[in-house]
Nucleic acid binder design. Structure first.
Lengths: 103, 103
DNA sequence: CAACAACATTACCCGTTGGTTATATTACCG
DNA sequence: CGGTAATATAACCAACGGGTAATGTTGTTG
């Protein structure tokens, strides 16, 4: 079972999540918005489902997928200690620029 | 050239970055701390270098690697709109729990 | 300069992954 | 009940990625 990081490594999977941020979506709608074939979409959705990043709901013949962002918290948590680091560096840059008013 | 996301998909690469958070490190030191062979480590370090996530400095025969967290900002930026979403859901959960004092 | 230490690179192998085509499944509709 | 729409699954293939063993490179030291 791939980790959340591996699941997000696929650009089109991130794109799918981006689309789903706007709200529930059927597979056909997703295929229309993301450059991937229908079987390819089903494959990606399966990966996203197994990673807990999306949930499905059945509506007649269609399956409506919706976002389930909880696993992203893991990524966010990993990122946390780094976040401070690049903030510090940007601050240092600003201070540096403050000392060079001619540039 | 792999994206930052793809670079981070490798667990050992994240581990390398985690080690480097403590400070500059030689390749041998990294090999001692991360379960990967020396050639494997060189490969991973190359990927991290080309992604801009680490920088090298030469010290005699050794090469000292240090963290360069700037590219992580891209990941953080992608995550941003989602961050609010799971925060909202946790808030909703809290409010829900507040309404059920017996549970 | 010879020997060694630290690291990078090459060549090779193998498992995984994403894409595609074809087929199965399930629900609706006439 | 036959046909069609929506989606999933299977089978196959090519590309890629990471591991390993062997070798190359560069700097140091005696």
């Amino acid at each position: 079972m791939p980790s959340t990081f591996e699941v997000l490594a696929e650009p089109r999977r991130r794109q799918i999540l981006d689309v789903l941020r706007a709200g529930e979506c059927s597979v056909n709608d997703l295929v229309a918005r993301v450059p991937v074939s229908q079987p390819g979409m089903s494959k990606h959705l399966k990966v996203l489902r197994e990673a807990g990043l999306v949930q499905v709901r059945q509506d007649a013949q269609r399956r409506l997928y919706r976002l389930s962002p909880a696993p992203l918290a893991e990524v966010d948590a990993w990122l946390e200690p780094y976040r401070q680091m690049w903030a510090e560096r940007l601050d240092a840059l600003e201070r540096h620029l403050d000392q060079m008013p001619d540039e």
